[in-house]
Design a binder for these strands. Structure first.
Length: 471
RNA sequence: GCCCCCAUCGUCUAGCCUGGCCUAGGACGCCGGCCUUUCACGCCGGAAACGCGGGUUCAAAUCCCGCUGGGGGUGCCA
């Protein structure tokens, strides 16, 4: 059975690149009817934070990625210890007493000579007795994995294809720090093996780690899994997407009012496209059905916020149900201070204005006239009202409104038509007068929609207020 | 520096494996038009790409080599 995992370290918010990795890993498992594991990689005590872990979980849930098993590496140190001992016993690992300063020197030396840095292997030759002696003296030490000389390590990556790296390029690496905590390259192997991970799906920044891990799999007698290294996501300037590119965490998009369905869909299309189809809008179920790692592009992709925006708009106006839209947008309207107690009214507004915005924070802006009665009219818009025959138009409107019921946008259009005929004004004068009087803006939602949805008393009140000032 | 990976419109991509159907298709964005008595939505049209140089072949976006460019890695981070 296929089993994949997503293994973030809780050192920051869920990044878009990691989110896409999680999605692809999840999709691949589900596509094959397999299991998906979430594992928190918190072996680095310094940088791991509980609050980041909580955010990670929240964002994953929000995106609709559900996991079958959950682990935290900090709770598994005993297990790792056991496997370290195994490697020590079999001679695949040895204690190293070199200090960070000595190692820095070696690195500088290599840099100067223009060769790839690798640990000198100074402590390799230590006899067990010498090592014991140093330990007794309280000298701090790390444990290193013994890398076989000159070995060419090859693997077939599911995305990148054939990859070959020589062991001489890296040399003996640390698997246990001097504080006794195990390092990433070691625990990842123990965990993936013990958890039965069949396909390791992760970012391509892990390619250089893969040969090291393969060596550990072998030393421990574990079966080596399949690997799939996904290209990274780039910012507009083609460098790896990072904080300096602005909004790059899932949280940013959640807070700005994007739908998780849309973000999920967009992220899938970054580096993947369904074979033989030009469609772009897919539900999660369809993606599970269609997704395969072999269709993932091996070149890095640039994140395009504008396209995500467009897709979110498509979801808002065409894909999600009114019920879903209501549920998702409500917190935004509430925190803007709008009165949303009348559910029927709110839904009526939403139903009629779905084509007016692409995100919820934009919706808060565009929908203000439906919820807030204080209309601020800027001086330059006042002069526009004065330039037009606004007074005549608006008073005619109020007069007609008084003994008539307005239910639909059509009703408003008919009313406007009558006034146009009676007063002989230009259509634009009518609409612009109404727009400024009712919203204080020059653009926004359709005035026919606003006027037919807003309670009549409020319309009359707003217009009268303007008429007073105009006279 | 050294190691690894990658290369089609500004961006995401189809086509590449299995050369001819490619006058290179779709999408975002951009430009123009239509619809519209307002604002949007929608619809129609347009500009826009095979990085460069060598091969192989009757034929190359597709196969091979080199160059250039981009990305990643080079930790007692993950």
């Amino acid at each position: 059975m296929v089993k994949t995992r997503f293994a973030p370290s809780p050192t920051g918010y869920l990044h878009l690149g990691n989110a896409r990795t999680a999605i692809f890993s999840y999709l691949f498992a589900r596509h094959h009817g397999g299991k998906f594991v979430l594992r928190i990689e918190d072996t680095d005590r310094e940088r791991s934070k509980k609050e980041f872990e909580e955010m990670l979980l929240k964002d994953l849930e929000w995106l609709g990625i559900e996991w079958d098993e959950f682990y935290r590496q900090s709770e598994r140190f005993d297990i790792y210890r056991k496997y370290v001992d195994k490697l020590l016993e079999s001679g695949h690992a040895y204690p190293c007493f070199c200090t960070p300063e000595e190692l820095d020197k070696e690195r500088e030396e290599a840099q100067r000579k223009g060769v790839a840095y690798r640990y000198s292997g100074k402590c390799r030759a230590l006899t067990p007795e010498e090592a014991e002696e140093l330990k007794r003296k309280g000298k701090p030490f790390t444990i290193r994995f013994r890398v076989p000389d000159g070995e060419e390590i090859v693997f077939e990556d599911l995305v990148k294809g054939h990859i070959s790296i020589n062991a001489d390029d890296f040399g003996d690496f640390v698997i246990v720090r001097s504080d006794g905590s195990p390092t990433y390259n070691f625990v990842v192997v123990v965990d993936d093996a013990l958890m039965g991970i069949t396909h390791v799906v992760r970012g391509e920044d892990h390619i250089p780690n893969t040969p090291k891990q393969i060596l550990i799999y072998r030393a421990l007698g574990f079966e080596v899994p399949e690997f799939a290294h996904l290209p990274v996501i780039l910012g507009e300037d083609r460098s790896k997407l990072s904080k300096r590119h602005g909004a790059v965490s899932v949280m940013n998009y959640r807070e700005e009012g994007f739908l998780p369905e849309a973000l999920f869909n967009y992220l899938c299309l970054l580096g993947w496209s369904p074979p033989g189809s030009e469609r772009e809008i897919f539900s999660k179920e369809e993606l599970i059905e269609l997704f395969d790692l072999k269709d993932v592009n091996s070149a890095p992709a640039v994140f395009n916020r504008e396209k995500l925006r467009w897709m979110n708009g498509v979801y808002i106006r065409e894909v999600v149900s009114l019920e879903r839209l209501y549920e998702a947008i409500l917190p935004f309207l509430e925190s803007a201070g709008y009165d949303v107690s009348d559910e029927v009214y709110v839904k009526k507004v939403l139903e009629r204005t779905r084509d007016a915005y692409d995100t919820f924070s934009e919706a808060v802006d565009k929908l203000r006239p439906f919820f807030v009665d204080d209309i601020d009219i800027a001086p330059e818009l006042w002069s526009r009202l004065e330039d037009m025959r606004s007074y005549e138009v608006l008073s005619a409107f109020v007069r007609k409104l008084e003994n008539r019921s307005i239910e639909t946008p059509e009703d408003v259009k008919n009313l406007a038509k009558e006034i146009q005929k009676e007063l002989g004004v230009k259509p634009k004068e009518i609409w612009h007068s109404l727009r400024i009087a009712l919203t204080g803006q020059l653009e926004g939602v359709g005035i026919d929609v606003l006027l037919s949805t807003l309670p009549k008393e409020k319309v009359i009140l707003r217009i009268n207020k303007v008429l007073e000032k105009l006279s």
